[in-house]
Write a protein that binds this DNA or RNA. Structure first.
Length: 670
DNA sequence: GAAATGTGTAGTAAC
DNA sequence: TACACATTTC
């Protein structure tokens, strides 16, 4: 497809700073892809000197796939396409000596940070979950604003901030002691490093000679500083963004960075893309009407040349079970009449928990589906256990990991032993693992606990030695064998079937790990430490399902859907309290929710379905709901309401039956 | 020290 | 409802 004049000028402007204000569906990814190609083919850039940064792994993956299909593989070798966090991780890894960190650090995810802070704040905040969350957020925004503990303490004006900044300091120290970093550090540390070290900055400026940033409206202060450091005075960069799609302010995103850019780079070339190539008229019109209710920084109006299309269907159902049933019936029926693929359908929701019921329904109808994002896989206990083992294998100072697995599976090391160990590690200012070798500690305990912990720690030292010196893959295998995890699963699971399910998850993780350790034609082999941090960032290569993808119904949050498009989109749970989310209503932050709805709507190419349930179960009780205000804000002439009591169209029912019979036949054949 | 039973609370979103 | 966490019993 040819580029329009605006897209073309965005691609061809390469010798200075460039801001592309790109409305939804205006082909911004195409601009990025073409620009990378253009830089390589017309301007002699080598792929390894170009970096493109996105915000989600899904977007990065999408971009990698698209560039791979548009260019010769050999030409894009070394091209960096990653999330900000992965880029930060790469910098830290490469500059580990300059930074003075130990070789193998752990990456703490939100939950690790939570449990660390819980321990840390025991005296001050007690069991108060609420304030721990508050503290986490405060620390995160300090980090995103490049404010270090000392500065936070100095600037604290009230007692609360004094306490929080003090705890921030302790938190940082504790992370250091664990040899661990949190996600915000992945941005903060490189940013500060570049700021303070001219030599390193120059080296990276030479490494990354052209930078492209997607979804620029999602950058926070620290990320913007990182961008500025990397591009330097040369300012060879392109950022693409849309303030109407700013949906990450809770992560510290500053859409004002779009405006700041023209102040920091007076010669900024600003290009607007207003031609939409994605959606039919009625979908685009609905989106425009909705977003018009929000204030705007930049004026822009999206146009489309596509036909007006069929009206948006608003489907009311009795409850969430019926909602899922109904959506799936629609998909089955629609696919049957239109000879489409399952991959043409996306189900978008506000919160990850909403996926469960759809998953159940899809499974029982034997419809292939793919849930992306969410934490479900990694929040499973068995996966957390194995991850903790791997983390400890990489970094024995990681007390969080140590505590999680030291007695899982059971090995006679209980609270009493651990308390003594904890006391000693406090005394000696060392990790629990190290303290376990201390004679003072060993003198305090006896019997089975003593030999158990000695056996365990010695074995682990051997294993980690094997990781570093010889064969990490073999070490992981030995680890898996040595912990007899399968036995433990069968012992503790409610049923053998459940145990098998969990073991399947473990094998899945194991096969990812070995694949990543091995590498393949497109991926370098990684160290175990790299594998573990990639897994923590959910930045793993997804293989083997490339082909299936177009035959799987796509399920994801609206956040995760940004940048993607599907012929048929279902936005489910369109209810007050869900979208807009209750907490956003409480905090009077409707605008961001409206942008989120806007993002969801603009994913649809052909047809859009909005569904809501009249009642919904919540914490075991059933509550009545109200349709989302965003439905009412749309232009009613674009909508076709289908309230309860109206019969499911005969055709749909027939097709569902047919499909079910076909499924049954297929099943019987097997 | 481990298993069984009771109690309270409810993760917005993603790296 | 469903799950993590605390308490009790073996």
């Amino acid at each position: 497809m040819r580029l329009n004049p605006e897209q073309d000028s965005a691609v061809k402007y390469v010798n200075g700073p460039c801001l592309v204000l790109a409305g939804a569906g205006s082909g911004k990814t195409r601009v990025i892809i073409n620009k990378i190609t253009h830089l390589i083919e017309q301007h002699g850039y080598s792929a390894k000197h170009i970096a493109a940064v996105t915000f989600t792994n899904k977007a990065a993956k999408e971009m990698r796939e698209r560039i791979a299909s548009s260019m010769d593989k050999s030409k894009i070798k070394g091209l960096r396409i990653s999330t900000f966090h992965t880029l930060g991780l790469d910098v830290i890894k490469k500059e580990i000596k300059t930074l003075g960190f130990k070789q193998n650090f752990s990456l703490f995810d939100d939950q690790d940070c939570f449990s660390l802070l819980k321990e840390l704040t025991e005296p001050e905040l007690k069991e108060d979950k609420e304030s721990i969350y508050q503290l986490i957020n405060r620390i995160s925004s300090w980090k995103n604003d490049l404010i270090l503990p000392k500065q936070a303490m100095a600037e604290a004006t009230d007692s609360e901030n004094a306490l929080y900044s003090e705890l921030y300091m302790r938190y940082q120290n504790q992370l250091r002691a664990y040899n661990a970093l949190d996600f915000d550090d992945l941005i903060l540390i490189p940013t500060l490093l570049f700021k303070n070290n001219d030599e390193v900055r120059a080296r990276w400026q030479d490494k990354i000679r052209y930078l492209l940033v997607d979804e620029y409206q999602d950058t926070n202060t620290s990320q913007y500083e990182l961008v500025k450091s990397l591009v330097g005075k040369r300012a060879h960069f392109t950022v693409v963004g849309d303030d109407d799609q700013s949906i990450y302010s809770w992560r510290g995103a500053r859409p004002q960075n779009l405006v700041l850019l023209s102040k920091d780079f007076p010669n900024l070339n600003l290009i607007k893309l207003e031609q939409n190539y994605r959606s039919v008229g009625c979908v685009l019109h609905a989106a425009n009407v909705l977003i018009d209710k929000n204030p705007h920084v930049f004026d822009k109006k999206l146009k489309t040349n596509m036909e007006y299309g069929e009206p948006i269907r608003i489907i009311q159902t009795k409850n969430e079970d019926n909602e899922a049933e109904r959506v799936i019936a629609e998909i089955i029926g629609h696919r049957f009449t239109n000879k489409t693929n399952y991959g043409d359908y996306a189900i978008l929701y506000r919160g990850n928990h909403q996926a469960r019921i759809f998953e159940k329904m899809l499974t029982s109808n034997r419809i292939p589906y793919k849930i992306s994002g969410g934490t479900s896989f990694f929040s499973r206990a068995e996966i957390k256990d194995i991850m903790a083992y791997l983390r400890l294998l990489v970094n024995q100072d990681d007390d969080n990991a140590f505590l999680r697995i030291i007695n899982t599976p059971r090995r006679q090391i209980g609270p009493a032993t651990l308390e003594k160990l904890g006391l000693l590690s406090n005394d000696r200012h060392c990790s629990l693992f190290e303290a376990a070798f201390d004679n003072a500690f060993l003198g305090m305990i006896n019997g089975p606990s003593k030999s158990a912990i000695q056996y365990f720690t010695r074995w682990f030292v051997e294993l980690s030695d094997q990781v570093l010196r010889s064969d990490p893959k073999e070490a992981v295998k030995d680890l898996m064998k040595g912990i007899h995890y399968e036995d433990w699963l069968f012992e503790t699971s409610s049923s053998p079937k459940a145990a098998e399910m969990r073991m399947k998850n473990v094998s899945e993780l194991y096969s990812w790990v070995t694949q990543m350790l091995d590498g393949d034609d497109e991926h370098e082999p990684l160290t175990l430490a790299e594998v573990v941090s990639k897994l923590t960032l959910r930045d793993m290569m997804e293989r083997n399902e490339e082909e299936e993808a177009n035959n799987q119904v796509q399920l994801m949050t609206m956040h995760a859907s940004k940048g993607l498009e599907y012929p048929y989109v279902f936005m489910v749970g369109m209810e007050e309290g869900l979208l807009p989310h209750q907490s956003s209503i409480d905090e009077d932050n409707i605008e961001e929710e409206r942008r989120l709805a806007y993002v969801g709507i603009t994913r649809a190419q052909q047809r859009l379905f909005l569904t809501y349930a009249k009642e919904r179960r919540q914490y075991g009780e059933t509550i009545m709901t109200e349709p989302s205000r965003f439905i009412e804000e749309l232009d009613q002439k674009d909508l076709r309401w289908e309230k309860l009591g109206q019969v499911v169209p005969e055709a749909v029912r027939k097709e569902k039956n047919k499909a079910n019979i076909a499924n049954l036949r297929a099943l019987l054949k097997k």
